[in-house]
Simulated scan of single mutants.
Amino acid sequence: MKTLTLFFFILFALTLTSNAQITKGNWLVGGNLTYGIQEGESNSNGNKSTSKGSALNLNADLGYFVINKLTVGLTPYFGFGNPEGSNNSSIGFGIGPFARYYFLKPEKTINIFSQLEYYYGNSYSNGKKESESNGYSIKNGVAIFLNNSIAFEVSLNYNVSKNNYVSGYDSKFKDFNIGVGFQIHLEKTTNQ
């Protein structure tokens, strides 16, 4: 317990002196890990069915601050899904654009952000292509700047995706998940 208290005290002390690099011309590099429960609806030849399952996703971010507090960029992802009641799990990967906005002043140690993503990807099961998917994600969270470059973040995410399966049917998935991650804010350099 003493170790945990000491960790949070050091974390708090470090955050008191940090200034975030969320200003125009800087870069954002990082990622997060999310876990959530999926709920889906499938449609095959007019027959509808519902399903549930769990998903684990690893997302990376590479963005550029076009104005203060607003970054745009690309986010590749890798995911693992396990439908409830099925022996077949699937893996997926893809990429898409994102935009992220920080709501508080750049000098704040703790900042609130919102991120909107669109993605396109493929999923595979048992080594064979299973589906093509596209969708969007809305992410809201808190970034805690440990120093002027590194932020720890926690977010609540809402995802909607549509899958077109090779076997001829389609499905829509919606899920909420919780994400944790780190972002590195790289300061622009100037040539003297």
Rank of each mutant, 00 (worst) to 15 (best):
Asn148Asp: 14
Asn43Tyr: 04
Ala60Phe: 15
Pro106Arg: 01
Ile150Asp: 05
Gly46Pro: 05
Gln38Pro: 00
Ala99Cys: 15
Asn147Asp: 12
Ile67Lys: 11
Gly94Gln: 04
Thr190Val: 08
Leu56Cys: 12
Phe173Ala: 00
Glu41Phe: 05
Ser171Trp: 02
Ile110Thr: 11
Thr50Pro: 01
Leu11Pro: 08
Glu39Gln: 15
Ile95Lys: 05
Asn191Gln: 12
Gly30Thr: 06
Tyr136Arg: 11
Val166Asn: 15
Ser90Tyr: 14
Glu39Trp: 10
Asn45Phe: 11
Ile112Met: 09
Lys162Cys: 03
Val66Glu: 03
Ala99Trp: 12
Lys2Ala: 15
Asn177Tyr: 11
Ser86Trp: 02
Ala20Trp: 00
Leu186His: 01
Leu74His: 02
Leu62Asn: 05
Ser161Tyr: 06
Ala151Gly: 11
Gly85Phe: 05
Glu84Gln: 15
Ser171Thr: 08
Asn47Glu: 12
Asn157Pro: 02
Glu153Gln: 08
Thr190Trp: 06
Ser171His: 07
Ile178Lys: 02
Gly81Met: 12
Gln21Arg: 13
Ala143Thr: 10
Leu11Ser: 07
Ile150Pro: 02
Lys128Asp: 06
Ser114Cys: 14
Gly30Ile: 08
Glu130Thr: 09
Val160Thr: 15
Leu104Asn: 15
Tyr64His: 03
Leu56Pro: 12
Ser86Ile: 08
Gly141Tyr: 04
Thr3Lys: 14
Ser86Tyr: 14
Leu14Ile: 09
Ile95Gly: 00
Asn68His: 11
Thr34Ser: 14
Phe78Trp: 08
Asn32Met: 08
Ser86Val: 05
Asn32Leu: 11
Gly63Ala: 07
Asn140Pro: 04
Phe173Asn: 09
Leu156Met: 08
Asn159Glu: 10
Gln38Gly: 03
Asn59Gly: 14
Ala60Val: 05
Val180Asp: 04
Thr75Lys: 13
Leu33Arg: 08
Val72Met: 10
Phe145Ala: 07
Thr75Gln: 12
Asn47Arg: 07
Gln183Pro: 00
Ile91Leu: 01
Val66Cys: 07
Gly30Cys: 14
Thr5Trp: 06
Gly31His: 09
His185Thr: 00
Tyr158Gly: 04
Tyr124Gly: 01
Asn45Trp: 10
Thr15Lys: 10
Tyr169Glu: 03
Val180Gln: 03
Phe65Glu: 05
Asp61Trp: 07
Trp27Asp: 00
Val142Gln: 04
